[in-house]
Simulated scan of single mutants.
Amino acid sequence: MIVVGSGVIGLTTAVVLAERGHSVLVRSREPAGRTTSAVAGALWWPYRIRPEDRVGDWSLESFAVYGELADRPEETGVRMVEGVHEGGRLDGLGAWAADVPELRVATASECRSGEGLWARLPLIDMPTHLRWLGARLAAAGGAVETGTVTSLASLAGSSGEARVVVNCAGLGARDLVPDPAVRPVRGQLVLVENPGVDTWYTGPESPSGGSTYFFPQPGRLVLGGTAQEDDWSTEPDPVVADAIVRRCAAVRPEIAGARILGHRVGLRPVRDAVRLERVRLPGGGTVVHHYGHGGAGVTVAWGCAREAADLVESGDA
């Protein structure tokens, strides 16, 4: 079968399918290292994703996997790191929060505003993690190739290349399906030399779409961010970058003098709800749609991938 898309959703789904014994080829218009997933800050947390009644299970299943992968951080890119969600409240979270170990109300010394949540969560170095996923896929017999997909129907069915196609195209699904419900939410980041920050931090979003967060990653500190709806620009805005640094430095003053290493922009593939369903095409082929994860693709990747694989196999019964 063919999996369209080489971001974290596509590669994780391909790994699950290949390890269940399926012959899997991932096809993507760009390599994994150039996807939106590659520039993500990648803190595990259900963020901008629906439906709420399914997100909790997907997230917790993924949390369990990342907990195991954190035993090999240099290989997998996954670490368990402490930090604070300033402004967060336990009663504002879903039922899933009760099953997150060590999630609690932050103490006054841990949170500058006096209200927030402290947690030890998976924090993922995405370039490393994507390479690890690719290697794990190859070990299971799968392969990745670069190529443009213009039609799902041309890939699936008796006259296509595969009996089943799994559509993990992310924002590309807007044109490929087509599905105009998929739209971009632009996120801009600043990478700086880490001045000694070893905990993550997130603050409340402003009405304008600006937010404050920083994530210590190997060799860098990732500063953010933005959530600009329907903005397709992938060029870093220097004015936005300066504002990001100022907001983060207001929380940790040492960030103000940190040397800037680079700038990153990613377009989150947001949809009113994740589309995860099996569809029979008029020509006889089958597509399992698996897209619309917004800014929480990493958070739900393993839970969603296993459900997508179940949908693939439901047609074999």
Rank of each mutant, 00 (worst) to 15 (best):
A97H: 00
C111P: 05
E102T: 13
A97E: 02
A119W: 11
V105H: 03
G88F: 00
C111T: 07
V105C: 02
A139L: 02
V84S: 03
G114F: 08
T107R: 14
R131G: 06
E86Q: 14
E110L: 10
P101W: 14
A138Y: 07
L137P: 08
A139R: 04
L117F: 07
L133Y: 06
R136E: 01
A135R: 12
A108F: 14
M126Q: 15
R89T: 13
L130D: 08
D91E: 11
A108W: 13
A135W: 04
A95E: 10
M126Y: 07
A139V: 04
R131Q: 10
H129C: 06
S113V: 15
C111R: 00
M126K: 11
A106F: 05
S109A: 15
I124Y: 06
D99M: 14
D99H: 12
D91H: 11
R131M: 07
R104Q: 11
W96I: 04
L90N: 11
W132V: 07
E102L: 13
A138N: 01
G114H: 15
I124N: 01
G134A: 07
G87V: 02
E86S: 06
R131K: 12
A97I: 01
V100Q: 08
R120C: 14
R104V: 04
E86F: 10
E86T: 07
W96M: 03
A106S: 02
G92R: 00
M126D: 03
P101K: 12
V100A: 08
R131W: 01
L93M: 08
V100R: 11
A139W: 00
M126S: 08
R131H: 10
A97M: 00
L117H: 05
W118E: 01
L90C: 06
P101Q: 10
R136D: 01
V100D: 10
A119C: 05
G88D: 01
G134V: 04
L130V: 12
H85A: 13
S109K: 09
L90H: 07
L93Y: 00
G87A: 04
